[in-house]
Amino acid sequence: MTLLDVENLWVQFPTRQGLFDAVRGVSFSLGKERLGIVGESGSGKSMTGRAILRLIRPPGIVKADHIDLEGQDLLKKSEKEMRSVRGQRISMVMQDPKFSLNPVMTVGDQLVEAYRLAHGSARKGATQAALEALDSVSIRNPERVMRAYPHEMSGGMGQRIMIAMMLIPNPQILIADEPTSALDVSVQRQVLSIMDRLVVDRGMGLIFISHDLNLVADFCDRVLIMYAGRVVEVCDADKLHQATHPYTRGLLNSLPRLDVPKERLEVLQRDPAWAEAPSVSGRVR
């Protein structure tokens, strides 16, 4: 079943030298699966995520044939209708929890507020739900965390709180933009497995945006590889290491590996044709 269907998505920014295309003609669909979008900085992967939620600020322009969320075109919705889509039906987790949580409110107050916004219930029920939400992201001492302020939390803890908060309204789709890049390796895996469990249990669709090929290969079902605003390759995540596009191969080969020592690393030779070729469609019918 298709939750989200994006066709021919463009994101453009006017500059002194004319229009700059940050995303060029990206198409993909998302079912109840984990879809990875990988690419280097400037490849347009984050822009794609933000464009779906129409979070590109003017003068940036978002164009697409359609961005269908269960058959409804998000591009045709008014800004007010979009507000109920954001958070309620599609949630987003950003890279650094420090900038996403309100520094002057306790974690508990923020969770309760999020719950009441989503479900409009009484305070008491909301508190209970917030505790459960913290519990679901494996926070051991939820009562104490509820009373704490964001700055008292470690990075991994903060990111788990963010995930808990984003999942409160029971969205159909979670967009995670580099959710673990600011975290240490050991914490990274914990946070990912928590996110994974929640997404699978609730039958949600996940768009996982990352620069880390290995992480995406381990963690997703399907992967889009982006370069210069285009999707250059689509493949199953477990077959990522057999990817064929020279760009993907180049990225994989340029990673140092502890188990395969080399004198020199392979350097990616960029071919201008990669940026010119049309975008590969990531849509499944």
Partner: peptide
């Protein structure tokens, strides 16, 4: 840095 750039810098350091 991005991984492709990382490779270049690591080679340079070598």
């Amino acid at each position: 840095l991005d991984v492709s750039v990382q490779a270049e810098i690591l080679n340079l350091l070598t």
